[in-house]
C-alpha cells in the first residue's frame, strides 16, 4: 500500500506513547487503519469495572469522514445496539476533521458515563432507561459483570 497519512502515523504514535487514561488503541498488524480498542468502564457508571472491546476503522476518507467504531463487547446501553453500533453525533453528522481517534474514544467513554436515552439506537433499552432508570442501570451493571469482565472471545 502506498502510504499511511502522516496524521494517522502521528495519532497512532501518540495513542501508544501517551495513551488516554482508561483507553488503549492498537493498530492491527496487517492493517494500520484498523484498531483494536479497549475502553475501561468509567467510574461511577454501571460500566465501572468492565473492559469493553471495540473495533475502529479509519476509512480512506479519514479525517474528512468519521472513523467507524463498534463495540465488540455486549453492553446494555440505550445508545448502543445489539450489534455494538454506537449512536453518537460526532460519528455521524457532527464529525469534524479536527477530531481524532483519541477524542472519539474519549467521547465514547463519556457516553458510557452519560447515556442519552433521548437519542436512542436500541429502542427497548432506551425505553427501559426512561421508564426505570434504576433497573436499567442494574441490568447494565449485570451485563458488565457478565460480558465485560472477561476478555471476549473473538
Amino acid at each position: 500500500m502506498a502510504s499511511l497519512p502522516k496524521r494517522i502515523i502521528k495519532e497512532t504514535q501518540r495513542l501508544i506513547t501517551e495513551p488516554a487514561p482508561g483507553i488503549s488503541a492498537t493498530p492491527a498488524t496487517d492493517n494500520f487503519r484498523y484498531f483494536k480498542v479497549a475502553i475501561s468502564g468509567p467510574l461511577d457508571s454501571p460500566f465501572e469495572g468492565g473492559i469493553f472491546n471495540l473495533e475502529l476503522f479509519l476509512t480512506d476518507d479519514y479525517p474528512m469522514s468519521a472513523p467507524k467504531v463498534r463495540f465488540l463487547t455486549k453492553i446494555y446501553h440505550p445508545n448502543i445496539d445489539k450489534l455494538g453500533r454506537i449512536c453518537l453525533d460526532i460519528l455521524k453528522d457532527k464529525w469534524s476533521p479536527a477530531l481524532q481517534i483519541r477524542t472519539v474514544l474519549l467521547s465514547i467513554q463519556a457516553l458510557l458515563s452519560a447515556p442519552n436515552p433521548d437519542d436512542p439506537l436500541a429502542n427497548d433499552v432506551a425505553e427501559h432507561w426512561k421508564t426505570n432508570e434504576k433497573e436499567a442501570m442494574a441490568r447494565a451493571r449485570e451485563w458488565t459483570r457478565l460480558y465485560a469482565e472477561q476478555p471476549i472471545e473473538n
Partner: peptide
C-alpha cells in the same frame, strides 16, 4: 486500496 476489515464489510452489507 485500503482493505476494509471483515466486520465493517459485513456491517455495510447488513445496512
Amino acid at each position: 486500496m485500503t482493505t476494509i476489515p471483515r466486520n465493517f464489510v459485513l456491517l455495510e452489507e447488513l445496512e
